[in-house]
Design a protein around this nucleic acid. Structure first.
Length: 156
DNA sequence: GCCAACGTTGGC
DNA sequence: GCCAACGTTGGC
């Protein structure tokens, strides 16, 4: 079992959108490292920290899980799609994605709170200049996030 | 294979 | 809107 943090802009797909849909295809990844995580390391059932980025309140907004193996991202072949990639060969698709299933909508664990939590200081997403939309999370980090989210008080 | 230019990300 | 940081591109 592996764990991941996956960024999404809530304008495009928020945790509530995922809750309503149940399962969503995680399309639009156009970064090789992120693609390789999905292709090579993700397994069905892996835990996902759902992170809202590029928004007024960035932070972890819920929990999800990997719901499929990686498969070709259809948006890369659609000229009308913002994620269209004219260089991708349909015979050998460059971009893949997994499906993600909603598990829980939590309180917002803000970026500010993440930065202030000593037990979460190792989170990749907190590294200076970190831009990867998908990053691995250790089991210790996963447990520490859940402990915070499920604590009786939302303070901190 | 180098590396400067360029485009994107994402918090503020 | 700003801008630091980063990844990709393409000329050489």
């Amino acid at each position: 079992m592996n764990y991941w943090l996956m960024k999404s802009e809530p304008d495009e797909a928020s945790i509530l959108d995922l809750q309503r849909a149940g399962t969503l295809p995680w399309t639009g990844v156009r970064n090789y490292q992120a693609r390789n995580f999905m292709r090579d390391a993700m397994r069905i059932g892996d835990g996902v920290l759902f992170y809202h980025s590029s928004c007024p309140q960035p932070g972890i907004a819920g929990l999800a899980e990997v719901a499929s193996a990686a498969y070709p991202d259809a948006t890369q072949f659609d000229p009308a799609n913002p994620y269209h990639d004219p260089k991708s060969d349909p015979a050998s698709p460059r971009w893949l994605h997994v499906d993600v299933r909603w598990r829980e909508t939590t309180r917002l664990l803000s970026l500010k709170e993440l930065r202030g939590a000593p037990e979460l200081a190792t989170l990749r997403v907190l590294e200076k200049g970190s831009r990867l939309s998908i990053t691995p999370v250790t089991s210790d980090e996963w447990r520490a996030v859940l402990a915070r989210l499920h604590a009786a008080s939302a303070a901190g």
